[in-house]
Amino acid sequence: MKHWPYPRWVAHRGAGKLAPENTLAAFRLGAEHGYRMFECDAKLSADGVVFLMHDAELDRTTNGTGIGGDRPWGELARLDAGSWHSRAWAGEPLPTLENLARLCLGNGYHLNIEIKPTDVAIAQRTGEVVAREAARLWTGAAVPPLLTSFRPESLAGAKAVAPQLPRGLLLDSLWQGWLEMALQLDCVALVCSHALWDAATVAQAKSAGLRCLSYTVNDEWAAQRLWDLGTDAIITDRVDLFAPV
């Protein structure tokens, strides 16, 4: 992408830790803090519905138990995804990607969809289904969502079914061949754990035509270091600390 249409600040899972992550309440709260781009985690229900949740297991962020991807959407839709955070959010449901798309498209918000397969065996299929759904939902939109994943198989699946949607490779370490893999997948960005960026890695990425994004940055000194390095965007939990200017 020669033109980079996304804001410099991205709210992690909606509103960081101020609201139950990956719920519509969190995205609305992030927007109240001035954020216009959000990161979310997308996975598949047992019957192929794309819904938002980070963990493979339901236990931490809902009143359910077991693997979320093993349940049909009809069961997942009835879970409470808010009470774990605080009483104020009791009864907040798990949203589908379509629910979030309506919120974003209706308000001009941008989205980074992390493709989050529950198992490596379905990584490619998850990428295919998420990308196909994103392409359908954002048909005709001026700015498409950015699809990212730690799993190259998921990005390969996304590329196969919706090559027009921009992709980014997520990295929690600089494993051998990381840059070559990003280029092979026709990525437009690298999204790294913020400590991985230094002058050399930024130069490598930029010389390859890739944008440099960082997660999850919650301290002012870390943010300033990344801006000084010339990176392009920061994903943060601290929507209450950083003004997204």
Rank of each mutant, 00 (worst) to 15 (best):
W9I: 05
V10Y: 01
H12V: 06
G14C: 02
A15M: 14
A15S: 15
K17H: 12
A19S: 13
A19W: 07
P20F: 02
P20W: 05
E21R: 15
L24T: 07
R28T: 07
H33Y: 15
G34Y: 06
Y35N: 03
M37R: 09
C40I: 01
C40G: 00
D41H: 13
V49Y: 04
V50D: 04
L52W: 06
L52K: 05
L58M: 05
G66Y: 03
I67C: 04
G68I: 04
G74P: 00
A77T: 05
L79E: 01
A81Q: 08
S86W: 08
G91K: 15
L94K: 07
E98F: 08
N99W: 13
H110F: 09
H110V: 02
I113N: 05
I115H: 05
A121H: 10
A121R: 15
Q124N: 08
V130A: 03
R132E: 10
R132P: 00
E133G: 00
A134S: 12
L137Q: 13
A141R: 13
A142H: 10
P144G: 07
L146V: 02
L146S: 01
L147N: 08
F150I: 10
P152N: 08
K159V: 00
A160R: 15
V161A: 03
A162I: 07
P163K: 12
L170T: 04
D172I: 11
S173Y: 15
L174S: 06
W178E: 04
E180A: 14
V188T: 11
V191K: 10
H194C: 01
A195L: 12
A203C: 10
Q204S: 11
A208K: 12
G209I: 12
L210K: 07
L210E: 03
D219F: 09
D219M: 13
E220F: 11
E220Q: 15
A222F: 03
D228I: 01
L229M: 09
T236E: 04
L241E: 04
P244W: 09
